[in-house]
């Protein structure tokens, strides 16, 4: 209490104070304007659709409807089924992509002749456009022109060659298989890069300590890969959950909506029924769910890396 108080009456002139406050914002302005124009405006516009009645075929639509779309969503059985399908489709696709991607990465990490060529070939599916991949797999499953039903019959897994994609109980496996084939390279590339950054002498030390290859995998490889796996699984989950191409091309959501995911449902609502308002509302729900999921994973990952410190 001994410090001399600044006289309360003294204040800088208003203009000067304004200039001082504004200065940093002026420096940032170009970037802020760019971000707003390129990212925020479309986002806000899209979100605003969810609260308006926008149907392309109805010239009188466009009015504000508040939470009407969301109320309708709550009662929409097709949406709830799509939500369940999304869970199944995303979970299974990401799981198989990760599992086979990891196996592939481990195989490619072992030196053998022709490894360079093998690596290049393995990454090929990644370069195939998704629509082509979807068509390709749809044909492969088709008993008239594709071999897969005949193989399955020959193996005794199927009574007679029929189209998996037409059987409501197993139709989802078609797109999941295609998505797995298409997504393995992504995991293989990232995991291989991570594997190659593990110091070799750790494995040597562990083998001298008496660890078998499997024990070495669990005590060295897996802890090293864990952060990479967490982040790639996060990215892939968001990506696959939003990924409608393969389903649209292969099954179009059918048979009997059994392969309809939220993403393909959005596509159907927007471009088949031309109800943009309702599609935006569905998209908003998906966005919220994925954001929540990402938060959980990021917190989890933070915990994991904190524990390592």
């Amino acid at each position: 209490m001994t410090a001399t108080p600044i006289p309360a009456t003294y204040r800088r002139p208003l203009r000067q104070r304004l200039a001082v406050t504004l200065e940093p914002w002026l420096y940032c302005a170009p970037v802020l304007i760019l971000i707003t124009a390129v990212m925020l405006v479309p986002l806000v516009l899209g979100i605003s659709y969810a609260f308006r009645d926008i149907q392309l075929l109805n010239p009188f639509s466009g009015g504000f409807v508040g939470l009407e779309h969301f109320k309708a969503l709550g009662q929409d059985d097709a949406f709830l089924r799509a939500l369940r399908n999304t869970l199944w489709w995303t979970g299974a696709s990401v799981f198989f992509q990760l599992a086979f991607g990891l196996i592939l990465a481990l195989l490619l990490n072992v030196p053998f002749t022709g490894r360079g060529l093998a690596q290049a070939l393995v990454f090929l599916p990644w370069a195939v456009p998704t629509f082509l991949a979807g068509l390709n797999w749809a044909w492969l499953f088709n008993p008239v022109i594709g071999p897969i039903p005949h193989w399955l019959t020959a193996l005794g897994l199927m009574d007679e060659p029929s189209n998996i994609l037409a059987d409501p109980s197993i139709a989802m496996w078609g797109p999941i298989l295609a998505a797995t084939w298409w997504g393995i390279p992504f995991f293989a590339i990232t995991l291989l890069a991570a594997l190659q950054s593990i110091p070799k002498d750790l494995y040597e030390a562990a083998s001298i300590d008496g660890a078998s290859p499997i024990q070495r995998f669990f005590s060295i490889t897996l802890p090293y890969l864990a952060p990479v796996i967490a982040i790639t699984v996060l990215l892939r989950t968001v990506w696959v959950a939003n990924f409608a191409d393969l389903i649209i091309v292969m099954t179009n959501g059918g048979p009997a909506d059994r392969t309809q995911t939220v993403a393909s449902y959005i596509f159907t609502q927007a471009f088949k029924r031309l109800d943009f308002g309702y599609a935006s509302a569905v998209a908003l729900v998906l966005l919220a769910l994925l954001l929540a999921y990402s938060m959980v994973i990021l917190v989890f990952r933070q915990k994991l890396s904190n524990r390592d410190k």
Partner: peptide, 14 residues
């Protein structure tokens, strides 16, 4: 036998 490496090769996650 036991070996001590130049880089120590300690298991970083343990």
């Amino acid at each position: 036998i036991a070996m001590v490496f130049q880089s120590y090769a300690l298991y970083p996650h343990m």
